[in-house]
Amino acid sequence: MELPNHDLKELFDQLGLPSSRAEIERFIEMHRPLPQGMRLADAPFWTPAQAQFLNEEFHDDADWVPLVDQLNALLHVQAPH
């Protein structure tokens, strides 16, 4: 069985967020860095539905997990100066 191969655009679509490359980059720049130790789903900018989706996908080890992990890493990185 072949697993779905999602990308960040699809994850942003799933979250109901603007999903062009520029909009994704803008979102990441605007919200990073998340405090060390803060879980992605606990970030204050998510709606309750978005946070629930992120929690469920992570805990269910769903096919979105690699993308959720990638977004988590991108949001925890300090912006370059």
Rank of each mutant, 00 (worst) to 15 (best):
M1P: 04
E2D: 09
L3G: 07
P4L: 06
P4A: 01
P4E: 15
N5D: 14
N5A: 14
H6Q: 02
D7N: 11
D7A: 05
L8M: 09
D13G: 02
Q14R: 15
L15M: 03
L15V: 01
G16K: 10
G16V: 00
S19F: 04
S19N: 10
S20Y: 00
R21C: 01
R21F: 02
E23R: 01
E23K: 00
E25P: 03
R26K: 13
F27N: 05
F27I: 01
E29L: 13
M30E: 07
H31E: 10
R32D: 01
P33A: 13
L34E: 05
L34H: 07
P35K: 07
Q36K: 08
Q36P: 06
G37V: 01
G37T: 11
M38D: 05
M38L: 14
R39Y: 12
R39L: 08
L40N: 06
L40T: 06
A41D: 13
A43C: 10
A43V: 02
A43T: 03
P44K: 09
F45R: 07
W46M: 03
P48F: 11
P48I: 13
P48S: 13
A49K: 14
A51F: 12
A51C: 07
Q52I: 10
F53L: 06
F53A: 04
L54K: 04
N55Q: 12
N55V: 10
E57Y: 09
E57L: 03
D60H: 13
D61Q: 11
D61P: 00
A62V: 02
D63M: 08
W64L: 09
W64A: 06
V65D: 10
V65N: 03
V65P: 00
P66Y: 10
P66W: 10
L67V: 02
L67M: 15
L67A: 01
V68L: 09
D69E: 03
D69Q: 14
Q70I: 03
N72P: 06
N72M: 05
N72H: 05
A73R: 12
L75N: 07
H76V: 03
H76C: 11
V77T: 12
Q78A: 15
A79F: 00
A79W: 02
A79P: 00
H81V: 12
H81F: 11
